[in-house]
Design a protein around this nucleic acid. Structure first.
Lengths: 214, 214
DNA sequence: TAGATTGTTAATCGATTAACAATC
DNA sequence: TAGATTGTTAATCGATTAACAATC
């Protein structure tokens, strides 16, 4: 796994929200949008929005704010979301299907061009316009299509084994939605999504609320 | 929305991983597990694991580590995961279904006892043993069952409207999987999950990897 | 012009890491 | 006992926030 000191991680995580608001402003026909407004919309401090946007290289106009169209392009360019990226989904259960059908990713340049599943009942027919192949074809298909990015939504027990196969097939980045802590070579990018950690936060907030009321 | 200075947020987010490893150690029959081992397993620093576990109140034995069973209970108690919590799911698309079917939550005490959908085709039959009701029944059902927690997995456009209905029905905590920045009263707990921010991180890591190779 | 907003530089805050004595 | 590990106290690091001059 790439040992990453991704600096700016908290800022990077906020950029998609800024992007969404900028796009809404574009819909409205606004030519400029200020950090103050964005902050208001997201319940953040204006200085934080300005600091975050600075890393994308966008520059604003005093009194007006940031030019909407260049702002959108600056964020997209910074995240590499202005280029098409092809990816596969491994495991077409409800979570895998949900991700394939989520329209937001397509807007960010992410195209799911194929999916894989061990269950023969799930292969054959397309899913959200992408073919679903049996796992046995993974290696060949990935190589042939030259895919570099995979979304992993298989059961916990199969996660490591699937990751191994992905790496062997030439995948360079794995978006891991399983709880498994994948063991992968140093040059493979892994992004772990942990739904339980979100629930831990919700639980904590509920506890704090209870204690405040008590 | 509860304006929370949840301190320890990064630590809280790591606790579920520690819990998983502790449970695996229990399966293995280990009586103790050291912070060093946990850290190794998760690619963290041992000191970070010790600091994180300290907030749960668990205390370890020099040379042995933490007693597995008490460790599990300490984490679960700290997160309130040792008590049953009933919740509903609003929006039974792929994402809502995925969450309902994810076995991890049940282990954390979270029970989805009903779901709601606007689409008449989706209501009537059970989903993962929980009845799916039409949205029109939301208010009555929530009140009657005394539910306090809701998972929101409706389309972006319907998010605010659904949240308003949830609040009106007496829901006190919303786990929000939509991109919408919900406007809710001060005493409502909201936990936002933003899939795009995870993808932003993946994109950044890929960029860094490319730059390292170039 | 007046004043809102940017962007820079400095201060604060909180999280991570280091050092090390205590201890089993 | 010897030595690995905990838990505490201090140091470092990075992110957030504050202050304010520049500017349109």
């Amino acid at each position: 796994m790439v040992k990453m000191k991704v600096s700016y991680a908290p800022s990077v995580r906020r950029l998609p929200s800024y992007l969404l608001i900028a796009k809404q402003a574009r819909e409205t026909g606004d030519e400029y949008i200020s950090g103050t407004i964005i902050a208001q919309e997201l319940n953040l401090e204006p200085i934080q929005v300005r600091k975050d946007l600075a890393i994308t290289g966008i520059s604003g106009k005093p009194k007006r704010g940031y030019p909407v169209e260049p702002l959108i392009h600056a964020i997209e360019a910074y995240l590499n979301w202005d280029k098409r990226v092809d990816a596969i989904v491994v495991g077409t259960g409800n979570l895998g299907s949900a991700l394939m059908g989520f329209p937001g990713f397509r807007q960010h340049g992410l195209h799911f061009i194929a999916a894989f599943d061990v269950d023969p009942a799930k292969t054959g027919a397309d899913k959200f316009d992408a073919p679903v192949y049996p796992m046995s074809e993974l290696d060949d298909r990935v190589r042939e299509m030259g895919i570099l990015v995979a979304v992993l939504t298989v059961p916990f027990a199969n996660a490591q084994e699937s990751a191994d196969r992905l790496v062997a097939a030439g995948i360079k980045a794995i978006w891991n939605f399983t709880n498994a802590k994948l063991k992968t070579p140093d040059d493979i990018v892994v992004q772990n999504e942990d739904l339980s950690s979100g629930y831990a936060m919700l639980s904590m907030k509920c506890r704090i609320r209870r204690e405040r009321l008590a």
